[in-house]
Design a protein around this nucleic acid. Structure first.
Lengths: 229, 229
DNA sequence: GGAATATTTTTGTTATAACAAAGGTCATCA
DNA sequence: TGATGACCTTTGTTATAACAAAAATATTCC
């Protein structure tokens, strides 16, 4: 059977092209923890999965490689970024810096409506926590933090932060799925502290909460990561 | 005349593939200020310039788009990133944060040999300044700063910083080429302050110097940028 | 002459074929 | 059994053709 691929419009009006579509879908999958760190991604598999040719599939992969979300190895294989323990610490340090910066700006600009939105996100996070569904917890946690950083009104900073979250996503997801941590109440408390600090515009306290939130999770993962080495 | 392209090896042993080569060359050109902000880049032109087909040329461009060094517009044209005045300020703020972080780590780890290297880079910078060659000044300035950030031993942070430098490169180059600024002695002084602070391991002073170095240049450009709006 | 329309050219996108390197399979021989 | 080598398969890379949208140019009509 000679399966000939139906040609897609070369450039839909305004619509993103096919390579971008594959890219977005891969990002989603990455965020949902559907890929493990170090996992190999094959060109023809992805092309088949999205019913497209090699060209858009390759574009999407190369784009993720450029963002260092995927890693291009010497033998031309492409794998999901799998940071060493040292790299994990480095990104943790960078995250603290950038997310404290975003928090500082958010705190200065934030409106009561935005604060309410943030509080709602935290409620959703707590609900997911009670359901013991780590995948929902991760998603809700991301939405909570991003809603704060969005309030900073620094779109380029937001992108850099989201980039790093995507890079670390698979690693964090991998370790969070090993139950145990989500029982901890530490993160809920730091979220509460953060909301309080934002509403009282206490910059020092807000940054302290952000730092603690990042470090609590990171230290947990770093411990396991070192053990498995 | 039917010019048939000689096929390149699909995957040289260890050597980077063709798309990567084009990418590196474009980065170089970008760093050397050979592209103006907003300039349009055409696929077939680049492919011809590097004597290759559309595929590797497109890969290189998409890669730069993924890094936001180039901008993909709605009508599918690709242009050199041209930040608004507001974005320029945002990146300036991010740079201060990240480069202060790198400086902090460099200060803690730095060896006397590295300090000597940094000092040499500053000499080269001053020499270029005396020659009134802004292109050399820009290159030497970049090398000076990067030699500090390299001492931080945070390769991923270094990459993020270099990314932002590449993004701002064309804009900075554009305004620096409008003579006048390189006569200023301010930047030379902050470099001296920075070296002193590093050698005496004075963290506060080092970060102050970094901040001033970034802001001095940024405010100059921001002023002109706003004027031309 | 100038605005509206038709035609041509340019340009980005995608499917596909050909290719080279790497990896795996299986037979052969010690 | 275990290593060696020949073969086949898989996989990433690149050149190219076909195509659609956009831009540029020419043409027509008032």
């Amino acid at each position: 059977m000679s399966k000939v691929q139906m040609r897609q419009p070369a450039r839909g009006t305004g619509e993103p092209h096919r390579g971008h579509f594959v890219y977005v879908k891969l990002c989603e999958a990455l965020r949902q923890g559907k890929f493990a760190p170090g996992q190999k991604l094959k060109l023809r598999e992805i092309a088949g999965q999205f019913d497209t040719s090699l060209t858009p599939a390759r574009e999407a992969l190369q784009r993720l490689v450029a963002q260092k979300i995927l890693t291009s190895n010497l033998n031309s294989t492409i794998t999901v970024f799998d940071p060493t323990a040292k790299e994990f610490l480095e990104f943790t340090r960078i995250r603290i810096d950038l997310e404290c910066l975003a928090t500082e700006w958010a705190l200065e600009n934030i409106s009561p409506e935005q604060l309410q939105v943030i509080s709602n996100k935290h409620d959703k996070y707590k609900q997911a926590l009670q359901r013991h569904n780590w995948q929902q917890v991760v998603a809700a946690n991301e939405k909570f933090h991003m809603s704060i950083y969005e309030a900073a009104d620094m779109p380029n900073l937001l992108e850099i932060i989201q980039d790093i979250w995507l890079k670390m996503g698979p690693t964090i997801g991998q370790y969070l799925s090993k139950k145990g941590f989500i029982e901890s109440r530490e993160l809920t408390d730091t979220h509460d502290d953060l909301i309080d600090a934002l509403s009282s515009k206490n910059k020092r306290a807000a940054q302290k909460a952000v730092k603690q939130d990042i470090e609590t999770l990171a230290q947990y993962i770093y411990r396991i990561k070192n053990m498995s080495d």
